[in-house]
């Protein structure tokens, strides 16, 4: 049996961070049935809300399922209790990240931002297309402006985001954090 020792502090934390309507839920399952993701994955919207209500912190924060919501908002639109379900899920995702449970894909995307300043780098195909259209090969973003990339790194470092994704940045001895 799963340990469901309630952790009321966790429930309160979810409520305080965007899940104000959490306790209105009466577990009817309209959300799960409406959920695009739950048709393909193990994610059960109602169950996630239930776990938040019961304060099942460890189970819910470490769960991969939490990241399968596509934020289509159909559940919110149909919920007969008016529960802001995506709000509850976002609150739990934020808490999960803080507790060190970020999804691998998100980590990789974040790494790309820190390294290149872009979530998606221009591909060769992209470059060819730009050339064909008569544009400069490299777009005038942080790819060209190195100081901009440095600024991004500083932000990531100062907010501690680099550590959250498990890739601490070494800005070097000379880098001054402003």
């Amino acid at each position: 049996m799963a340990d469901i020792t309630p952790n009321p502090d966790f429930t309160r934390e979810v409520i305080a961070n965007g899940g104000e309507t959490l306790n209105l839920c009466y577990q009817c399952g309209t959300c799960t049935g409406s959920c695009l993701s739950s048709r393909m994955t193990a994610f059960k919207t109602r169950k996630a809300v239930r776990m938040a209500q019961l304060g099942m912190k460890d189970q819910v924060l470490s769960s991969k399922d939490l990241w399968y919501c596509t934020t289509c908002y159909t559940c919110y639109e149909r919920c007969p209790r008016g529960v802001d379900i995506p709000g509850v899920l976002f609150a739990m995702r934020n808490l999960a990240v803080q507790a060190g449970h970020m999804a691998e894909g998100h980590k990789r995307t974040s790494e790309a931002i820190i390294t290149y300043g872009h979530a998606v780098r221009p591909s060769d195909k992209n470059t060819e297309l730009r050339k064909a259209l008569g544009l400069v090969e490299t777009p005038p973003t942080v790819l060209v402006h190195e100081s901009g990339l440095m600024d991004i790194k500083r932000i990531m470092c100062k907010t501690g985001f680099d550590k959250l994704i498990g890739k601490p940045i070494d800005l070097g001895a000379g880098a001054v954090l402003k």
Binding site: Q27, C28, G29, C31, T32, G33, S34, S38, K44, R78
Partner: peptide
């Protein structure tokens, strides 16, 4: 609580729901 119902060619309604 049933989430949605749609029609089929022979007019048999299909329901999508979670057995909670």
């Amino acid at each position: 609580s049933v989430s949605e119902v749609w029609d089929t060619r022979n007019h048999n309604p299909v329901m999508r729901y979670e057995d909670t």
